[in-house]
Amino acid sequence: MASQGTKRSYEQMETDGERQNATEIRASVGKMIGGIGRFYIQMCTELKLSDYEGRLIQNSLTIERMVLSAFDERRNKYLEEHPSAGKDPKKTGGPIYRRVNGKWMRELILYDKEEIRRIWRQANNGDDATAGLTHMMIWHSNLNDATYQRTRALVRTGMDPRMCSLMQGSTLPRRSGAAGAAVKGVGTMVMELVRMIKRGINDRNFWRGENGRKTRIAYERMCNILKGKFQTAAQKAMMDQVRESRNPGNAEFEDLTFLARSALILRGSVAHKSCLPACVYGPAVASGYDFEREGYSLVGIDPFRLLQNSQVYSLIRPNENPAHKSQLVWMACHSAAFEDLRVLSFIKGTKVLPRGKLSTRGVQIASNENMETMESSTLELRSRYWAIRTRSGGNTNQQRASAGQISIQPTFSVQRNLPFDRTTIMAAFNGNTEGRTSDMRTEIIRMMESARPEDVSFQGRGVFELSDEKAASPIVPSFDMSNEGSYFFGDNAEEYDN
């Protein structure tokens, strides 16, 4: 783990906690998980779902989305002020799938948001429990990260689609708070800032007046979040320049895209947490497990152990491969979309394939898809080993990566060399080191050039047997250095459309 220093740990961010010791953190995270579980059980009762239907990941996603929508204050306010045809701002819903006479049927349900809020609060001892809501947002974000390569979004903001390893959390809503900021990748933060800068260039009043003052505060806050992700002084200094700019424009845009590229080699610290679907927490609570009393951590053995003992089902389209669908969801559960496939294969105990080789589309089923041909199958979400999630980018030494994705962002704290394609990355730096950030740029390029592919990161860190909950005997895996390590390699994943 990167030293926490003055930073709060993510469990504290996750639970809005002030400084807590490890036991208190485990208890408050457990409380959050228990609340999600209780809410899910109650919703299944309301909807009269069978046990099997309640364990269907598509039903879980609909129920999670309903509660997130019920608590989305800004959108609710907007919907009330701008009524649109056929949208009731006070209601929320989605597809629920039921097994009827041996076939899967889709039923569109509609609930009062007020009623959903009441059920959620009741499951969370009367609190709004925003930490639990954020947790579900991060699960949705991790699922998107594993399912889609955001080529269009990258290109629109002047970045290269091969930089997708920097895009963790790119679909997280803005209201996801400190826990959300911690899991956002460098590219995601750059993209958010670039969008602001572009608006400022096109709209003279963007930075002016009372609204402009708020915009400015948001801009500086985002700059500080991004600065905190960088691990070298030169990158941090460049972020200070971007933040202090009187009138952010093209120079800042250039600096930010430069920094994003540099992060492929001088990786930023991005938190990883295993956020599971509500249909995993519900049955665990129903079986009598007391998360608050037992304590829970999002970055240790607990999620692995929970998945070892969970039964989750998914709808499967006619030509999809259930094992591939399982891999997709497994990666999402562990926030591992940008991790090295060699490491993932070792931990999972079966070969993890790149996205383009998977015969599976996303987990969600569109409303126009034919239910007649839908089957369902068990998702295999178990693992051979477990490993500690990392909050750091690993040290800054790398190795060759593949054509589709030119770097990785480690999820697990496991000893290995970190793949990246130096030639491709360095070719993108057209040696432009003039301007006010020239000395920093020169320094950053120097550090990137001296990074050695064969150097090892996370020295001495290994994986653990599932029986080793105290992480007492690390097993340090050895990897084939020459092997392909990137998930979005030469990829044809669908595009994420909101």
Results as ranks from 00 to 15, higher is better:
M1L: 13
T6I: 09
E11I: 09
D16Q: 13
R19A: 01
N21K: 10
T23F: 14
G34D: 11
G35H: 08
I36P: 06
G37V: 11
R38K: 03
R38Q: 10
Y40K: 00
I41C: 06
E46F: 03
K48F: 02
Y52L: 03
E53A: 14
R55N: 06
L56K: 03
I57R: 01
M66T: 09
V67T: 07
S69T: 07
S69V: 13
A70C: 15
F71Q: 14
E73I: 09
E73C: 02
R74E: 06
N76L: 11
L79N: 09
E81M: 02
P83I: 05
A85Q: 11
G86V: 12
D88K: 01
K90L: 12
I109W: 05
K113W: 08
E115T: 05
R121S: 14
R121M: 11
D128M: 02
G132E: 03
T134Y: 00
N142R: 04
N142L: 00
T147H: 09
R152T: 03
A153P: 04
L154T: 01
L154G: 00
R162V: 06
M163A: 03
M167I: 10
S170T: 12
L172M: 06
L172P: 11
R175W: 11
S176A: 13
G177D: 06
A179R: 00
G180F: 09
V183S: 13
G185E: 11
T188M: 11
T188E: 05
V190Y: 04
M191G: 05
L193K: 04
R195L: 02
R195H: 02
I201M: 12
N202S: 10
N202V: 03
F206L: 11
W207E: 00
G209H: 01
A218E: 08
I225Y: 05
I225P: 01
G228F: 12
K229A: 08
Q231L: 10
M238Q: 15
D240I: 03
D240L: 05
V242G: 01
V242Y: 11
R243T: 09
R246C: 06
G249C: 07
T257A: 14
T257W: 05
R261S: 05
R261P: 12
S262L: 02
L266H: 07
G268M: 07
A271Q: 00
A278G: 15
A284Q: 14
S287I: 12
R293V: 15
G295H: 07
S297W: 07
G300L: 01
I301M: 11
D302S: 12
P303G: 09
R305H: 13
V312F: 12
L315H: 01
I316S: 14
I316C: 15
I316W: 01
N319H: 11
N321Y: 14
P322E: 08
S326F: 03
Q327Y: 02
W330S: 05
W330I: 07
A337W: 07
S345D: 14
I347D: 02
G349K: 04
T350A: 15
P354G: 02
G356L: 04
G356A: 14
K357S: 15
S359T: 15
R361D: 02
N368Q: 14
L381K: 03
Q398I: 15
Q399G: 07
R400P: 06
I406T: 13
T411I: 13
T411W: 04
N417L: 00
N417V: 15
L418I: 14
R422K: 09
I425H: 06
F429P: 01
G431D: 03
N432V: 09
E434P: 15
G435I: 10
S438Q: 15
R441D: 05
T442M: 06
T442K: 06
T442W: 05
R446N: 12
P453C: 08
E454M: 10
E454F: 13
D455P: 00
D455H: 07
S457F: 10
R461A: 00
G462K: 03
G462C: 05
V463M: 13
E465W: 06
F479W: 05
M481C: 07
N483F: 13
E484N: 15
G485K: 02
S486Y: 14
F488A: 03
